[in-house]
Design a protein around this nucleic acid. Structure first.
Lengths: 363, 363
DNA sequence: GTGAAAGCGCTAACAG
DNA sequence: CTGTTAGCGCTTTCAC
């Protein structure tokens, strides 16, 4: 910058002005500066800028490196769009609309200084996919810049002051379950959750229970099954267990095979479809299967999977909007908490005709 | 940082050491510092750090905001994974492996200071999707930091010094065309390109020509058709034109409908499938249709689309590796140029049985 | 092992 | 409209 100033015969202040506020500089001067900059190959230092102006014009996003090994190599992993990809997309778009760029990093452990801290130090504010970052670290960081939590509701009270966006897990599962109950007249439903108690999954289960309770179907207070992980492999295992009557908790089935397997996510449901096909159990004729999430894979499997679609792109957009609102000092003091609506995708695996666009109709 | 130093009774130099090189500080001191930092909610400033150490630990990526309006709202645009998404994924992963974060921004016009410049100023090096950034600007920036071009080959000689990675467009199209020629015995092939001459598309067409020439099929030196854009709508229009004998250039068909429509990308091919269905022309019985890219949609349409799959995730990974190599001062002076291999996906639209995993087999 | 001091490259008043 | 002058918060020799 000093060189540019010298070469164009002005002060560094003027060079600075040319970039930050072009109109405040006489056109001729401006051209001279720009020309010098071009000749010198001048690239303004974002760091120095940020330091001096205490703001970076960058938003951050931390997400888990969620690579389910089961799906990792489908199509060289080209086709399977993960949550994080969609959130990234939404957030980048919204950020860009407001002139921000997006810094992304999957969480990674580290010494006293994790990648999160590194990201945090380079952005004006950032979003975190729930449970990606140690609570304590988040707490510390959130004292200095706006942070919004994504998807997982405020698990920890020490994080209650954070803004937060999630999807309607409970309502979605409730609607789906009602569909099974009322439209398909099913009664013996088995819910498959996960050991590791996740707020999202618990909310979904609550929706399931509520629907069952309203229909007078007793399914107990616990999922029929809790698997250690929410992967395809575990989904397949769950299906096997359920078929073999390996459980009698909360299915209301007394060992009989349930009429519907209600999975806490699509991954497991897809694994189940696979296992059922292997065993020769027909879906949906012999048993209905449902998932949750609406991942692209859910439309690729046969039968197509009935599920609850989450608006992940919107999630990312909302995160950016919220952060930018905070940065502008709008959105008062109160922490904001948004719940994005979901929609039930009725497809073949519950016995519906798959009328959904997509196979070709969408084109 | 000064506060942390004071509170823990050390100098700022020591605080700095605790974060950058923990082992150079006595354990007791270190703990004291860390505790103070926690109490104060200290978040190291990435900017100040970068300024002082002249490096950011961040890689950048500029991509076009490629939102084909035709596909934009499929499934709330949740399902359609764009190129950029895959490249982002690959690049983030590779960057992370080496301790870098990734700063992303879709290109956007601006005053003297575009978003690109902003990104450039905040990263140690970055990748650019071809034709996303004005050549001149790139030239200037690349004098200061490593830049790698993605996908589009060195269009401009002033950019010849840049590293660059692309996919085997020509070979891919060549293989696909040979398949049509030899395995399906087709002769009257029509290639559909685009007006706006793109290096990728030209390379693909060269592959097409080469295969035709080798098989003794004359198709002239120009694509049968060049559409203004590579969208579904244009693909549909192209199919109509071809069916109506609206061209007699280079099809070798003299107005008769060609036996195969070879599209320069999947988008157009998908649009064509749609148009053909409308007209009652059966694919592949009446005419074969092929695309290029291997977008997820190509597996969702019926018939599934025969195409050439590009390894976009690898592209992103390579970009990151290349940059990091440069930053480490490895990879000598010479610009590196990589060509990633592609693979032909033989699916239903060319008359092959779609044996490809994915519908269920992949699970 | 720890402190002191000199910048890193830019922005933002404040004068002129 | 343009120049002067302080820092912004950290890293980094170089002493101690």
């Amino acid at each position: 910058m000093y060189d540019v100033a010298e070469r164009s015969g002005v002060s560094i202040a003027t060079v600075s002005r040319v970039y930050r506020n072009p109109d405040s500089v006489r056109a001729a001067t401006r051209e001279r500066v720009l020309a010098a900059a071009r000749e010198l190959g001048y690239v303004p230092s974002g760091n120095a800028r940020g330091l001096a102006s205490r703001s970076t014009g960058v938003l951050g996003l931390c997400f888990p490196d969620y690579a389910d090994p089961d799906t990792a190599d489908i199509e060289d992993d080209d086709a399977a769009m993960l949550y994080s990809d969609q959130i990234i997309r939404g957030m980048e778009r919204a950020a860009r609309r407001h002139g921000y760029a997006l810094l992304i990093a999957a969480s990674l452990e580290g010494g006293p200084e994790s990648l999160v801290a590194k990201v945090a130090g380079r952005v004006d504010g950032f979003a975190v996919l729930a449970r990606t970052v140690p609570t304590e670290e988040l707490e510390v960081i959130s004292r200095r810049r706006p942070v919004v939590m994504l998807a997982g509701p405020r698990a920890d009270p020490s994080l209650d002051h954070l803004d937060h966006v999630e999807v309607a897990n409970e309502d979605g599962q409730y609607e789906l379950t009602r569909h099974l109950l009322h439209n398909h007249g099913l009664r013996r439903l088995a819910y498959v959750g996960v050991d590791d108690t996740s707020p999202d999954v618990e909310a979904r289960f609550r929706g399931f229970r509520r629907a069952c309770a309203e229909a007078g179907v007793d399914i107990g207070t616990e999922p029929a099954l809790r698997m250690p992980m929410m992967t395809q492999a575990e989904g397949a295992r769950a299906a096997d267990l359920l078929c073999d009557g390996g459980t009698d908790t909360g299915t209301g089935t007394d060992g009989e095979r349930p009429e519907a397997f209600v999975f806490a996510n699509d991954q497991m449901a897809v694994g189940a479809l696979q296992a059922l096909e292997r065993r020769g159990v027909r879906v949906p004729d012999d048993v209905a299967v449902t998932g949750f999430d609406g991942i692209p894979l859910s439309r690729l499997v046969r039968p197509t999977l009935t599920t609850v679609r989450q608006p992940m792109v919107r999630l990312g957009e909302q995160a950016a909007e919220l952060l930018i609102g905070r940065l502008r000092g709008q959105s008062g003091e109160e922490p904001v908490s948004l719940v994005l609506p979901v929609s039930v995708a009725r497809r073949a695996s519950c016995g519906c005709a798959d009328t959904e666009p997509g196979t070709f109709g969408a084109l």
